[in-house]
Amino acid sequence: MNIKILGSSCANCKTMYARVEEALRDLAIGATLEKVEDIQRIISYGIMATPGLVIDEKVISQGRVQTVSKLKEILLESNNAHSG
């Protein structure tokens, strides 16, 4: 599974990144986590509000800092879809 956090160095984007990291650690799911800070790349995903959450090239959410528990839900779901 490949996870991207889109957003150039704003406070919310850093929080989001840290929370995804935490959720991944708690769930013990193997995934590559990536920060996308280049504005042209961010825009190529069609999002306007940062932080954007992209899992396996699919935009999951934008402009919202999700809670860790919500992120775990999302990650588990995507992980099942990924392996199944």
């Binding site: 150039s8 704003c10 919310n12």
Partner: peptide
Amino acid sequence: TPFCSCSAVPFFIGF
């Protein structure tokens, strides 16, 4: 609309 000034550029382009 939820907005933070760090997303001014993506907003601008999106619009």
